[in-house]
Design a protein around this nucleic acid. Structure first.
Lengths: 334, 334
DNA sequence: GTGAAAGCGCTAACAT
DNA sequence: ATGTTAGCGCTTTCAC
């Protein structure tokens, strides 16, 4: 079964390659009759377009890059698979596009990334999670359309952003804790310095705490490593201090660590309430089941693809910022 | 910054494009002096190869396809991200290769997949999880090198397979339960009919049960949906029957559902022991922490890439089957 | 050891 | 409405 080209179709259908190309690309420059004949022979011959040739001729590869960072991906608990799931659903709607994937490691990935984008003629790239501003700026210089997911970067002028309603979501989460009776809520997150997402969530926390007249104390703000263990340790410290009756986790793994520490030591939610930013089916099945905020991860993925394709159409101009609403899933920890 | 081509390099370095091409591809047909001059100008000009052109000329795209199925990916708990993590690590070792990804949905994905492979000139494809035999056979007909991960398919003659030591692993897991004092072990899995992985795990279970002289009863074998809920319901049924003191979960989510049901109802591990096939960091932090079998998922991903690249080198012939050893991570549920 | 030239499959002027 | 043709950037005989 050798390769069928448009030349074969042209010969067989008795037309020129240009006509075949036109028909195949939906260019309306021929009469219906020819159109159908070309389409028919194409089908009969089992023609499959060769994208490399097309790309070479047009500079359009139909390739969207997905960039993942080591940290996000290494975590067995991350919701990256849901994101990718959403992207895969969305990409099916765009016949000529495919997803190509890479991972950025801590060191010197910039040159790698630039090469990657250039050599594959990527048309757009979606970044999942956090990256150094410098890397992003360098990539933006190449002029490629970019969409950032779960990541804020004030300095990029043309990239679009998708994230959760971090501030509002956190406000609602903390409000929920207070409504359930809490009088002192702790806020646990990763590095506030390095991570705008956590800063936003902190603003939401702060707003709720002040709004409801609770004290905003330093000991109630804990920056930890973003792991199960980080949550466990934070909870231990909080309990040892003994002044707090609820914890908000900015990274959801932490909440599982918290439950581990609390079970057998404190009554949940009586003595300690827990809420986590980020929902997972699993949270229904922890002991006790975990109240959390649902960020519609899969939908974020779909949106990312739709947005990047829009941007490609708009020739890369035009920045957008989309916040995905957050819903509270109330369960046993509150 | 316009596109730099080998033609530019040739002109600048005062040689022909053929020589540039040779040098760039490491063909040893010129003297050291020319070689260095070409390399130097290439660097100075900021040359980046154009893969589409290369692919068009050579039929080698440097693209490896990853196929995911809807089910695996939709599960927020799947370890797909770890697999992809491993693949991304491995792919970095092969300068000319990249990973392109797609998802197979339940219906009529065969034609889609064939097109995908053909139009992108994929050099090899890695399947994660389960697919219909017919689909796989059709793809194999195209002659493309295939590597299957966590999936057994007796009928494919040239594809290679990577999976866990399912039978031995299950044997060890059940043996562990028995050694901890169990006298009646239940086996919970998804559809045995449809899934060879579960059949293998069942053989291991059966072997251990017989080896240690326990009874092999029908009520101790439960086929359920492979979800948290499936595990929860299975556990409820087992407890209501009241004849069993340990459960082996072939899909690890089930174990979380089991804990949910058991906490407050039964003493773990006193009255009921639990073990799950498939480890996750999270299992350290459940209440109680979950004993499980570690299948080195990330390593599987690396191996998949290495194997497919080998196959591409060998021109697609030569079938291999690799079983990844399974280790038991003993925790509080046993 | 190096160069000239044909060609990979497709697109897009430009002609007709 | 359709055909001719010149590339897109690279590889690869085949000559020199």
């Amino acid at each position: 079964m050798k390769k069928v080209t448009i030349r074969d179709i042209a010969r067989e259908a008795g037309v020129s390659v240009a006509t075949v190309s036109n028909v195949l690309n939906g260019v309306e420059k021929c009469r219906e009759e020819t159109r159908e004949r070309v389409l028919k022979t194409a089908r009969e011959l089992g023609y499959r377009p060769n994208i490399s040739a097309k790309t070479l001729a047009t500079r359009r590869s139909g390739l969207l890059g997905i960039v993942i960072n080591e940290k996000t991906e290494g975590s067995s608990f991350s919701q990256m698979n849901l994101l990718v799931n959403g992207m895969n659903s969305a990409i099916r709607r765009y016949e000529n596009y495919d997803l190509i994937i890479t991972e950025v490691f801590r060191d010197g990935s910039m040159e790698y990334l630039r090469d990657w984008i250039a050599k594959r003629d990527l048309e757009g790239v979606i970044f999942l999670g956090d990256y150094e501003e410098e890397l992003l700026r360098e990539i933006e210089k190449t002029g490629i359309p970019m969409v950032m997911v779960d990541n804020y970067g004030e300095e990029l002028k043309e990239a679009s952003y998708i994230h959760s309603e971090d501030t509002l979501g956190s406000y609602l989460a903390v409000e929920h804790l207070i409504e359930r009776g809490s009088r002192s809520v702790a806020f646990v997150c990763g590095s506030l310095d390095e991570n705008e997402v956590y800063r936003r969530r902190f603003y939401g926390y702060k707003a709720a705490v002040e709004e409801y007249g609770l004290a905003l104390t330093e000991e109630n703000i804990l920056e930890t490593e973003e792991t199960f263990r980080g949550g466990y340790e934070a909870t231990r410290r909080i309990c040892e201090a003994g002044k707090t009756d609820a914890i908000f986790f900015s990274y959801s793994e932490g909440a599982l660590g918290a439950l581990k520490y609390l079970n057998g030591r404190r009554d949940i939610p009586g003595e300690m309430k827990i809420i986590a930013f980020g929902d997972t089916q699993a949270w229904e099945y922890t002991t006790p089941s975990l109240t959390s905020t649902d960020q519609q991860v899969s939908y974020k993925g779909e949106l990312a693809v739709d947005m990047i394709i829009d941007k490609i159409g708009d020739r890369g101009k035009f920045k957008r910022e989309v916040s995905i609403p957050v819903k509270i899933r109330k369960r046993e920890t509150t």
